[in-house]
Design a protein around this nucleic acid. Sequence first.
DNA 1: CAGTTCGTGGGACATGCGTCCCATGACGAG
DNA 2: CTCGTCATGGGACGCATGTCCCACGAACTG
Lengths: 235, 235
Amino acid sequence: MKVMSTPYETGGRSAQKARTRDALVAAARDLVAAGVTPTVEDAAAAASISRTTAYRYFPSKRALLLAAHPEIAAASMLPADPPHDPAARLDAVVANFTAMILDTEAQQRTMLRLSLEADAAERDPLPLRQGRAIAWIAEALDGVRGDLSDQQFRQLVLSIRATIGIEAIAWLVDVAGLSRNDAAALTRWSAQALLHRATTTPPPAPSRSGRKGRPSRATSDPISNTPAEPGSTRP
Amino acid sequence: MKVMSTPYETGGRSAQKARTRDALVAAARDLVAAGVTPTVEDAAAAASISRTTAYRYFPSKRALLLAAHPEIAAASMLPADPPHDPAARLDAVVANFTAMILDTEAQQRTMLRLSLEADAAERDPLPLRQGRAIAWIAEALDGVRGDLSDQQFRQLVLSIRATIGIEAIAWLVDVAGLSRNDAAALTRWSAQALLHRATTTPPPAPSRSGRKGRPSRATSDPISNTPAEPGSTRP
DNA sequence: CAGTTCGTGGGACATGCGTCCCATGACGAG
DNA sequence: CTCGTCATGGGACGCATGTCCCACGAACTG
């Protein structure tokens, strides 16, 4: 049977604990945003907290830094007067998204690395946070939503997201040796290719068995996963 | 000026050093292939070597494990009687490649993680090893090679590789929550989309400035990067 | 006000990484 | 054979992660 370990924060005196935790996360976020990957001791000291207490709130440095990931607040990536053509809309979103990724590349790479550090089946899968890219892409593709089934539409969005993410950029730069600009241009082209192909040959529908990976959070709507706000990092 | 630190293995008594190094790498490779991520001490002990000596050959655990990455030996991923249609050839290669990735998923994820661990500009960029996927894809697409410029062809190959790699699979599974089979099916579809788009709208040519990332190894031919054989891991 | 609860801090411990210094012992040159 | 070079081994150190135990002190309870 499963034990479902209750987090440390539940129970009496919760206000004090919430303050402590928020201070810790905020301090860690500041350090991460400053471009460094802080030690647990560093983050604790920055929050005027003891190292021991920090470990009472997060089981590992990885968990703390994941919770401290600065989230982009923008609700949309479309320009002020967005075009109607889905291809143009997608291209605008991809261009903005890629520019944002490259602007914060160090943080993006850190988070990517952290998300992979649960190499073997860890004790707790540590829910991975999903950014807003999926919502941004879906918004750009609103015009073709009716041409596909919900599941096909979601698959298309996912394939585009997988193509333009930091994982792809990092591979193109590190291994393939492209410049960052060339990598960005290539992912833009790839996104267009996926969209165009979807209008003639839709992506495969997912298997009936549903998701078998480690979903980042439960969701009923197949598209609009609403990630946490920058301030509220607690589940 | 750059110091170009000469590796420990150069100089007198090189045969002995080569034997020591090979034993260490072989021991590490066995452990990695067994699914674990050994400590430096483990790998050294498995090679009947002291920990100190191991550090004489590799500056970090990361460098040792990267050198120990088991390489797939297959020279081609096409079936025995390959079709002529480029789309069919590519699909066969992508299917085989993806199956291989999922078969060795733990190792692939470990290597991906290691390749990202040079987060900030490390002391030594530690040349990343490039698998044979690029050669396999290029072979599958031989039929369309004449329709594109060399550079466009390479961009197409790179975009396909970026789409079907472990990075994309890991994101689709971990974050998007797809099952491994669904993720594989989606990358197959994506690869087809990229190929089909390339025949009508070729990928963008890279900027004149050339590669600005950290190329894994010098190469004259833009396509056929020949990675190291499993046995010879020394540069 | 007295007693319990509970968040916190401090210190110790074990492990792993990476570095340094020094001893040992095998190899090769004279 | 002898001496010096050189690969190796052993042990120590500093640092970070993660765990554990115990004491302090503030807040809640009666």
